[in-house]
């Protein structure tokens, strides 16, 4: 009985800590505006990025050379996105409020992916410029 109680409390705390941790990683990207070039490449019209676009943006991110410092963040956000998608599909009909919250969070994940894409595009351009200046 006590073990079951500890399990329930621990799992509830684990979920809350994990969600908050992921949000603290994502929160830093909210302060960054996307560059025109990144918007053009990703087909984003305004600041709003739909949650469904996360996978597509992630594929674009993976096409770009890795600067080597955001892989872990992306993996954490991917896990968080999967958890949210599971929540949304499980509670879609039972609890619309939970599904709506999950969708807003997914939008945050998608914006994070867009910021990562922007960073990688900038990195690729800098890399190319450096190579060209070396050739000259």
């Amino acid at each position: 009985m006590i073990a079951a109680l500890i399990l329930v409390i621990s799992v509830a705390a684990l979920l809350q800590f994990f969600v908050s941790y992921c949000r603290s990683v994502i929160a830093a990207s909210y302060r960054k505006n996307l560059s025109e070039h990144a918007r053009e490449v990703a087909g984003i019209e305004n600041r709003f990025v739909r949650g469904d676009e996360f996978e597509r943006l992630l594929q674009l991110v993976r096409l770009c050379p890795e600067p080597g410092d955001d892989g872990r963040e992306l993996r954490a956000v991917c896990s968080y996105f999967d958890l949210l998608s599971l929540l949304r599909s499980s509670f879609g009909r039972l609890a619309p409020a939970v599904a709506n919250w999950a969708e807003r969070e997914r939008e945050g994940c998608a914006y994070f992916a867009a910021v990562a894409l922007d960073r990688r595009i900038t990195y690729s351009r800098d890399l190319m410029a450096e190579q060209m200046s070396n050739q000259l």
Partner: peptide, 19 residues
């Protein structure tokens, strides 16, 4: 938060082991 994830996952795994 990272410590919270660690502690709660460990406490849950200990509870699972007892159950």
């Amino acid at each position: 938060l990272a410590l919270g994830v660690y502690f709660s996952a460990f406490a849950a795994s200990y509870a699972l082991r007892n159950l």
